[in-house]
Design a protein around this nucleic acid. Structure first.
Lengths: 339, 339
DNA sequence: TAGTTTAATGTTAACGATTTAAATCATGGG
DNA sequence: CCCATGATTTAAATCGTTAACATTAAACTA
């Protein structure tokens, strides 16, 4: 409960002016005698002086804060993404403020406002429910640089992305190469741009081998384990030999639905995921998936954003990260001719 | 890029003083004519005025911020915990700043300092590597209320807890009731207080039925899926009929280790977890576990902390939340006499 | 009418830092 | 012994708000 020690207290204790203290503590103290420098530094430790964050930011005009908006913390993909953000932010003396907006439109706007209020230096937005143009309007009006992620329909601002179209194609190619032709797609309820790309790519991949993905073979549900689970019956009714799940979480939900019905993956049904969360490697059978480098994506996003903060008139940056097919045990080879 | 609009601009535009604006915008404007009130409010929208966070906090002396330190974001238990925190914080106009300290001692201290610098109003610390007394020294020196979680060896500050001792007993009782006698324990490398309790309870539970948990039946490894996986061989060497994993993550790792060896849960080995993360319900076989109400714990922790902030001289609060055994399919009944 | 309320709004001093521009102090050459 | 010079140090302005304390004008009271 000790009264907070201010720069004035420290100055007084050291017998110098506040200017002196401020300069020395901010590394601009070359012009002071090493004697006073030492004295100030020593007393700082001794009194435990920490510059007041608000006072400092008020005059400096920076909070060293990055706002982050994500749809769902419980999805391991995003935990990893955040870990990447945190790492880079930390080493650049920034602090991320993370909001899990849980696909709630209203909440999302609230958080956006909160971040503006708090004078975040920049934002990383990985949430899809907000309209990109709305975001742009609000943020550029407030002069806040931001980076849109995972929903790059609008070509505004910097961009970190993976080639989802190609990812979809890779999935299709793999499934086809294993002899599957009757393939169902398990997608989310809201189709963001990147997921649309994924689906388009998948369709295109199918088409290349004169296979098709008719509309009646796609099932939509919430993009969670539960969603995948609940879609099982509907999916089974379509009698596919393989299912491409738009993310791993759903695939894992489907696993359960199948197992409850006594069906075996991949013998009775092949399942393929997307994201390659660490769990993919721990379910039985191990899930074949398309690997998205979530951690790295977080790192790169943060790096780009910070670069932009340092240099606002930088040309728009665009960084693509590689996707990778990780073939494990959830897809059965039912014929190896690919006609 | 438009120059930031200040309260002075708004005041000028409305033809009133800054006080008037300030008061009106802070709900203390009853003393002004409804005419000016309307005018100010309208112009605020029009000019898009947002009070400067730092200036405001500087004079108000509060940042409406809660710092949160957790060991691992990727553990679903903590994602849930955080979701609970966020929900309550949000509805009380607080914002949580979350740090994933990843059992890194140094990082943890850094984050702690950062939170102090940022003048967080209070802290929720769910990280074990820091010494409770160190924390107390640093934080009470700075007059920051905090709430220790998940490592309540020191009886300092407020407390949210589950009865881990009883949790351990419940696990033991259940395993014994299913006829198991040769039981191994899979624990973490660092044994925090709550986990120590869990283990003690487990031991006591065993003892009650004249069973024992000899030291050679406990295996220690990192508390992650990978850790659980890597412990498989060592565990198997002890030839138990059941394994009690100190958390679900490890149990899931063990699942994989067993499945790779062609062993079936629960026919070849029974597995029991702790936490009851949502995944427990989605693995095959579904994992029997002790349910910790992670989300609720986050909620309650935040509620207690905020109450404390509002009233610093409140008596220490102590809230216990219930634990629950969730019997699913991962433990085999090998004899139903419990002699 | 003079004095007192009351309603409506304004002045200005904090808050705790940073920073610019100016002041002070030695030192030494002329 | 004076002043220029460079080395140290400081006074004061500033950042955008809030709030305690005025102030003003109109309305009411006796």
């Amino acid at each position: 409960m000790a009264q907070k020690v201010t720069i004035r207290d420290l100055a007084e204790a050291a017998g110098v002016s506040v200017t002196t203290v401020s300069q020395i503590l901010n590394g601009k103290g070359d012009r002071f005698s090493s004697d006073t420098r030492a004295r100030v530094l020593k007393l700082q430790k001794q009194l435990g002086y920490v510059p007041d964050f608000n006072a400092r930011n008020l005059i400096m005009g920076s909070t060293q804060t990055i706002g982050v908006l994500i749809p769902n913390l419980a999805n391991p993909f995003f935990s990893m993404f955040i870990k990447g953000i945190q790492q880079v932010a930390q080493s650049n003396h920034f602090v991320p403020i993370i909001f899990d907006a849980n696909q709630n439109q209203r909440l999302q706007s609230m958080y956006l406002e909160e971040l503006i209020k708090r004078a975040a230096n920049g934002l990383i937005i990985a949430s899809a429910t907000l309209d990109a143009n709305d975001i742009d309007r609000i943020l550029t009006r407030n002069g806040i640089p931001y980076l849109l992620f995972d929903q790059n329909d609008a070509q505004i601002g910097d961009r970190v992305w993976v080639d989802d179209y190609k990812g979809g194609q890779m999935a299709a190619n793999y499934l086809l190469s294993q002899g599957h032709r009757k393939i169902a797609l398990l997608a989310g309820e809201t189709i963001t741009h990147n997921i649309q790309q994924r689906i388009s790519g998948f369709r295109a991949g199918m088409a290349k081998y004169r296979a098709t993905l008719p509309d009646e073979m796609v099932v939509q549900t919430s993009m969670t384990k539960l969603g995948g689970y609940q879609a099982t019956a509907e999916l089974l009714a379509k009698k596919p030999t393989a299912v491409f799940c738009i993310n791993d979480e759903m695939a894992i939900g489907l696993y359960r639905g199948l197992s409850e019905r006594g069906l075996k993956v991949p013998d009775d049904l092949s399942v393929m995921g997307y994201d390659d969360i660490d769990l993919a490697n721990f379910v039985t059978p191990k899930l074949t998936s398309i690997h998205q480098p979530a951690f790295e994506m977080g790192q790169v996003a943060t790096k780009l954003l910070i670069e932009r903060l340092h240099n606002p008139r930088l040309a728009h940056q665009d960084k693509q990260l590689p996707l990778e097919l990780v073939a494990r045990d959830s897809v059965k080879l039912i014929a190896d001719d690919i006609q």
